[in-house]
Simulated scan of single mutants.
Amino acid sequence: MATAAAKGPASYFPSIEKKYGRPIAEWKEIIRSSPLSRHMELVNWLKAEHGLGHGHANALVAHTLAEAAEAGS
């Protein structure tokens, strides 16, 4: 049985890992350890401090914050 293609922010994950050389779990930990909490603050921080492109940073932040929201539910 074929695996369904990732949708939404997760669809960016393979290219993020390939381009930046870190696993997604490591990026999520970096985001969670940041003192910032707002979506665009985190996106801009990843772009400035880690050299990520806007789409990749946005996907990582969206997915990480969504996980945190689900865990808090």
Rank of each mutant, 00 (worst) to 15 (best):
E26T: 13
I16S: 00
A59F: 05
E70W: 02
A71C: 05
P23S: 06
K47Q: 15
I24P: 04
K7C: 01
A25R: 11
K47W: 00
S11A: 14
K19A: 10
A2G: 08
A4C: 03
A66H: 09
I31S: 09
Y12C: 02
A69S: 14
S11N: 09
S33N: 13
G51T: 06
K7W: 01
E49W: 02
G72S: 15
E41W: 06
K28T: 06
G55S: 11
I30F: 04
P35F: 10
H63F: 06
A25E: 05
K28M: 12
K47Y: 02
L65C: 03
K28D: 06
A48F: 07
R38D: 12
R22G: 01
E41N: 14
P9E: 05
M1F: 07
L52C: 05
F13H: 04
R32Y: 01
G55R: 08
A48K: 08
S37R: 14
I24C: 09
S11R: 11
A6C: 06
H54S: 08
W27Y: 04
G51H: 07
E17P: 01
E29S: 05
A71L: 12
P35L: 11
G21N: 05
I31E: 03
K19E: 12
N58D: 15
G53E: 08
A59H: 03
Y12W: 02
P35S: 13
L52P: 01
G21T: 02
W45G: 04
P14Y: 01
S15P: 00
N58T: 14
E41Y: 07
R32I: 07
Y12E: 06
S73D: 15
A62K: 10
W27T: 01
H50Q: 10
K7F: 03
G72F: 11
L36N: 11
T64E: 15
A25P: 07
L52G: 01
P9L: 01
S37G: 15
P14K: 04
G53C: 00
N44G: 12
A25L: 08
P35D: 14
E67R: 07
I16F: 00
T64A: 13
E49A: 10
H63R: 09
A59Q: 01
I16W: 00
V43Y: 05
M1E: 13
L42T: 08
H50W: 07
H56W: 00
I30M: 14
K28W: 00
S37M: 06
G21V: 02
A6P: 07
A59G: 07
A2C: 09
Y12D: 00
M1C: 11
S73P: 10
A4W: 06
Y20H: 15
